[in-house]
Amino acid sequence: MRTGSAILTTLAVLFLSVAPVLAEGEIEDGFVSLFNGKDLTNWTTPEGDGGKWKVVDGVIDYNADSEAKGDKNLWSEKEYGDFILKMDWRIKETSGLYPVPIVLEDGSYLNDATGKKLTIQMPNADSGIYVRGTSKAQINMWCWPIGSGEVYGYRNNQKDPVIRAGVTPKINADNPVGEWNQFTIIMVNDRLTVILNNKMVLENAQLPEVPAMGRIALQHHGGVNADGSYKPASSLVQFRNIWIKELPNPKSP
């Protein structure tokens, strides 16, 4: 009978044997790697971060405790226009109870009889992916019932009901906290498609006036309290297997 350590060793060997095949498949499809599994090459660490964005056991790890005084996000060095972005991500653990609103299918909130937005205290952690260099075009990763993949900045600042509904997930496709998820994010002109764990959560959603080019960011969110405890919804996240394929666009500068 195999011991637990023997089983883990076998799984690790199997993963390492499959990983080069997966990488080869991405390269053959025109993708390039944005993360080498060793260091933060291709990324710009926030000034004064204090080593909170780091590589641990082959993944980008963040604990929400950046010491940077300004922008705390991890940004790609390069700007991108139209692209297909693939990455694995996971929320390591939740960081406290957060008043989570109930988002409806049309992107609006569920209200009580007086018109006040309803919230439910739930365990949560929060991060996201910025595209085209702007926080408004943030693809959320969190524990809300609506699911990850929504574009918070557009959903909350858009009066057009069609656009608002378009940036609201069609389905909650998240794996449980602690398990890995896979994003495929596709940007073409001002249209965004998001596939989460092989399920279409956004389809050709319009992001009006989104910049034509911009860097990609892995989002800092939350932080720590004076006593060292995490604030609710802090970013306790990891990323791996980050690949991007640039798409031709005659409209790009």
Rank of each mutant, 00 (worst) to 15 (best):
G133E: 10
A12P: 02
G153T: 04
E24D: 15
E28Y: 12
G58E: 08
H220Q: 06
K38G: 00
D65M: 02
N189E: 14
D82V: 05
D61Q: 05
G51T: 00
V237S: 02
K159H: 12
L104C: 03
I129G: 07
P145E: 12
K117P: 02
G166E: 10
N124M: 08
V18K: 10
M141Y: 06
D190I: 05
T45D: 03
P176G: 00
V103I: 14
R215Q: 13
T41F: 07
G50A: 03
N189A: 14
V151A: 13
S17F: 06
W53Y: 00
I195T: 02
E150W: 15
I146S: 13
V162N: 11
G214C: 08
L34H: 04
N241F: 01
F183R: 03
Q158K: 05
D88E: 15
Y109K: 03
R132K: 15
G51F: 00
R164A: 04
K170M: 15
S108D: 11
K78R: 15
S17N: 13
W53V: 00
T41V: 12
I163N: 10
N198I: 05
A113C: 09
S235I: 06
N111P: 01
T44K: 11
N63S: 11
G37F: 09
K170N: 14
V201S: 02
G37P: 06
S17E: 11
W89T: 04
T94K: 09
P99G: 05
N189M: 08
E26V: 09
E77G: 05
Y109Q: 03
K92F: 00
A217P: 07
T10I: 13
A6W: 08
H221Q: 10
R215E: 13
F83G: 11
A233K: 00
G128E: 10
V103T: 10
V55P: 03
N181I: 05
V201E: 04
S229A: 07
K69C: 06
D160N: 14
D174S: 07
K69Q: 14
K72P: 01
S76N: 08
D82A: 06
E150V: 14
P145V: 05
V194D: 10
E105S: 13
D65L: 01
G149H: 10
L8M: 14
I242R: 10
Q138R: 12
I27H: 12
A233T: 00
Q182R: 15
Y109A: 06
G81Y: 08
R2H: 12
V210F: 06
F35M: 07
G70H: 08
T114Q: 14
Y130H: 13
W243P: 08
D174Q: 10
P46I: 00
W89A: 08
Q138K: 13
K159D: 15
E79M: 12
D49L: 03
D29L: 12
P253C: 07
K92T: 00
C143Q: 12
D106V: 00
I216F: 05
G115A: 04
I242T: 04
S5F: 14
K245E: 11
G30E: 08
A205M: 04
P211R: 01
F15D: 02
K54S: 10
E26K: 15
I139W: 08
E93G: 02
M187N: 06
K245V: 05
I185F: 07
R240M: 08
